[in-house]
Simulated scan of single mutants.
Amino acid sequence: MRIGYVGLGNMGGPMCRNLVKGVNHEVVVHDLDPAAIAACTAVGARPAGGLAALAESSDVIFTSLPTPKHVEAVVEEIAAHAKPGTVVFDLSTNAPAVIRRLHAALAAKGIALLDAPVTGGVARAVEASIVVMVGGDEALFDQHRAMLAAFSGTQVHVGPVGSASVAKLINNMLVLCNMAVAAEGMTIGRLAGIDMGKLVQIVQNGSGDSFGFRGLTARAMKGDVAPSFALDLAYKDLGLAVDLATEHGVPGLMGPQALALLRMARGLGFGGLDTSAMLKVYETLLNTEVRA
């Protein structure tokens, strides 16, 4: 079997390398960044020589791309060149409606598409312990589960195509809202004059703890805002979640507020920094520094 892998960024790169090391199949790769390709070929992958060539020769294709528009462009190329019977897993964070539309377009050509977004962050992608959630044909999920397990610690079949994307958007909405309120809370603590290290210790061992809080305190509150999960991508993900809420008539009370904070951060030029750099909005507006 030949596996194609498209998109070798912060998440896609380590997932691909773990896939190469964890399966007994040939893996061919494609990315716009030659350095990203080289990092994967160094562990045994082969460069595909272009997206069309990858699509033509692969039995299974993984895509890990930044936005729905990128996924649509790549899937269009796959549809034009892949053979009937090819199975595509989209690991990207995508809009459910987009995934369903692409699924229908590929199905007309005899190509299967499953949405398979992941959660856990870059560190867990590196150690192959991320969670992959899958929407689509359950028999295909079962058939390829060992392949998914090569780069993830937990694999969950969620339901029909699009359902995994719903789960991913809700997951990301929760963590981003948690991080937003953590940024506000830590700023209050700083201006109220309490010991920030002790405040962090209390929250991390108390009921206010969360993945988002730990991300904020481990990065932005240490002055480290080099991108792990870029704020621009978080803004995209939360925007998709807010759109999904609107689609289903759910009152937007929390998500849109966190989205507004991310929008302010982007307006201040922080979009290319780590998502935890949302704290810098408070620091900028209040001319203070929040550190632990």
Score class of each variant (00 low, 15 high):
G185I: 03
V166E: 08
V122N: 00
C177F: 03
D137W: 12
G121H: 09
A105E: 14
H144L: 00
R101M: 12
G120C: 11
L148K: 04
T119C: 11
V134M: 06
F141M: 01
C177I: 06
N178K: 00
A108W: 09
D137Q: 12
I188Y: 15
A167I: 04
A108L: 08
E184Y: 10
C177T: 08
T119P: 09
D115S: 00
V181Q: 00
M173N: 10
A149K: 13
V161R: 02
A105I: 13
I111K: 08
G185Y: 07
G136R: 03
L114G: 02
M133E: 02
A183I: 01
P117L: 11
H144A: 01
A180E: 01
S152L: 13
A104T: 12
Q143M: 11
P160K: 03
R101K: 13
G121V: 06
T187R: 13
L113V: 13
H103W: 14
A183H: 07
M147N: 02
V126I: 14
S129L: 15
V118N: 01
A107S: 15
R101C: 13
S152I: 05
L148V: 10
V156P: 08
Q155M: 14
A104C: 11
A116L: 02
G135V: 06
G189S: 07
G110L: 14
